[in-house]
Amino acid sequence: MVYYFTSKREDTPREVELYMGKHKEENEDLIKYGLETDVWFHVDNLSSAHVYLRLVPGELWDDLPTGLLEDCAQLTKANSIEGNKRDNITVIYTPWSNLRKTNGMAIGQVGFKKDKLVKKVHIPCRINGIVNRLNKTKKESFPDLQGEKIQYEKERARLQRKQQQEALRKEKLEAEARKREKYEREHAYEDLFSEENLNKNSNQNRSEDWEDDFW
């Protein structure tokens, strides 16, 4: 079972989905089938739920709106047995893609590929108003995490192919435009010195009374 929550603050342009597993066994599936757009949250040095924030392409994990970051951290703290009782705790967060899972680790335990991609946020105390607001949006679900992952990867590959095709099309159009400009520069004077235009401007082809044109 996975718990889903919805965060909507004044500094966020949309409703944002947060989710977490019911127990550590489910955390294993969340670690395994997370998406590139997911951000992982956990209380530092204490046992807690693994809370995930699901962003959309283009949103940056390390530049989260203050209100959204506070919601994620408060929800993480509230779902830590020991951390929920303490003041002045630290919540850490990092992209899902930075999580590292090895065979020797316990269930629900993770490490990091790059420590420099782990950020921290200090939480002075529990804010009941935030926790209660998020809990009102709580929904329980049994999602097909593997299926969602496969579908996500297919859609991402499709978009990448589309972007590559668009880039190739743009590159082709730009190359054709450069080719036309080069041709026009190289042949700019051909019409000016053509036999027809030279004949038009030659005095030899004027009528005998051509001087009358100046009177």
Rank of each mutant, 00 (worst) to 15 (best):
S7L: 13
K8L: 04
R9E: 04
E10Q: 09
E10C: 07
T12M: 15
T12R: 14
P13I: 03
L18E: 08
Y19W: 15
G21L: 11
G21E: 04
K22M: 05
K22E: 13
H23Q: 03
E26Q: 15
N27T: 15
D29R: 11
L30Q: 06
I31E: 07
K32N: 14
D38G: 09
W40N: 03
V43P: 01
V43D: 02
D44T: 04
S47T: 04
S47G: 10
S48Y: 03
A49K: 10
H50Q: 03
R54A: 14
R54Q: 12
V56Y: 03
V56I: 14
P57L: 09
G58Y: 03
L60V: 08
W61F: 08
P65G: 06
P65N: 12
T66S: 06
C72Y: 01
Q74M: 15
L75R: 01
T76C: 09
T76E: 14
A78T: 00
N79W: 07
N79P: 03
N79K: 02
I81R: 10
E82Y: 07
E82W: 00
G83Q: 08
N84L: 04
K85D: 00
R86G: 04
R86K: 11
I89G: 02
V91E: 02
S97V: 02
R100N: 11
T102W: 13
M105W: 06
M105Y: 14
I107R: 14
V110G: 02
K114C: 11
D115H: 03
V118C: 11
K119Y: 14
K119W: 14
K119F: 14
R126F: 11
I127N: 04
I127K: 06
N128R: 09
N128L: 09
G129Y: 10
I130L: 10
I130N: 11
N135A: 07
K138M: 13
L145H: 06
L145R: 07
Q151G: 08
Q151M: 06
Y152D: 09
K154V: 13
R156T: 06
A157Q: 13
A157E: 12
R158W: 02
Q164M: 02
Q165Y: 00
Q165C: 00
A167E: 14
R169P: 00
K170W: 01
K172L: 11
E174V: 05
E176I: 10
E181T: 03
K182W: 02
K182E: 11
E184V: 05
E186H: 01
H187D: 05
A188H: 11
Y189Q: 13
E190R: 12
E190Q: 09
D191A: 04
F193G: 12
S194G: 04
N197W: 00
L198T: 05
N199F: 07
N201V: 15
N201C: 06
S202L: 13
N203T: 00
S207E: 04
S207L: 13
S207P: 10
E208N: 07
D209H: 08
D209Y: 01
D212C: 05
D212F: 00
F214R: 07
